[in-house]
Design a binder for these strands. Sequence first.
DNA 1: AGTATTTGACCACG
DNA 2: CGTGGTCAAATACT
Length: 361
Amino acid sequence: MEGNLKLEQVGLISDLMQGKELAKKLHDLMFSSSSSTSHETKEVLLDKIFVSYEKALTKLNWEANVGEEDTKITIFKMMDSPCSFTNESPRGEVFNQEVKHKNVSKKRKTMDSWTKQMKVCPGTVLDGSLGDGYNWRKYGQKDILGAKFPRGYYRCTHRHAQGCLATKQVQKSDEETTYEITYKGRHTCIQSSHAKKAFPSKSKICIGENKHHNHQKKIALEEKKIEQQQTQDTAFTFGPELEVKIDLENKEDIFPSFFFPSPSIGSETMIENHFTESFSPAFLSPSTSESNIFCLSPCNFGSIGLGLSVQTSESDITDIVSATTSVNNSPIANLDDLDLFFDNVDFDTDFPINTPEYFTL
DNA sequence: AGTATTTGACCACG
DNA sequence: CGTGGTCAAATACT
């Protein structure tokens, strides 16, 4: 019994190592200057990688509920990401790759789900509804066995109004700087008229000094909120930096068009996550070669004019959101679109711009 | 007053 | 039966 196990483990490791090697070769091919490399070669490598991992997964008795095609799609999507093959994090931070249990509960087996990890530093506070630009309403909190912190359950605000079944679970990990966010289901809602609520003023206060009066009152309020947020999981703490790791687990559309508001450019500005699919590696600096952590540095933002603090009017937000959250999430991530995007925003010079945040997707 | 959050209870799954 | 996920009444907030 034990012998068998060891043999299997050796085989497993061998398969995984082979996959890694092949991936590395593919990586070299893809980033080598020679354009002569045939597309076929790449495909052969991809197939080999796929087979290696398939074998490994089979050995792990991986459930067949993720079909062959789906697996392939997942792998290809990972390849598509400009950051999947990057070598280093700008800040040298590394996320441990970890095998996580998907389908946290079999109850929701049929739903799409994907998990992302966000590494944050203390300092700034964002509301739980932030982080992806959708409006979330907390509907539960539960102490989870073995977890130091309770898990928060959120559903789309438009559940009743528009029948949107998207939900997410936010779990603060034992190291207090990491949040694991599991999304389930897709947004079928149009966020338009409520979009502004995704960016409540309190996050503004935290990110930078608020320019309005009643300072002391607001600060006191904020302290109270922070206090609450430390004991409950209704808010995230985002600091000068934040990392997000997305687990490419789900079967079809891995990035269902959620938004990542940038703390550095104002809480009312969103950047669509399709960045990850269209921007060059120079813009989206990679974290590690073995993880799919995407980084956006302020300088990179600056290179396309995003380093400035911007604030959108409510109507602008409404327009932008309704335009970009449309059903099948057509990517807006080219620079032309960005230009359009920023044509629609007002620059607010009162807003502090010296915060050196960057975030990773 | 309307909306969001909290929290204990309930339910489904393994 | 234990655990995780959801519901819904009570409460808090705006």
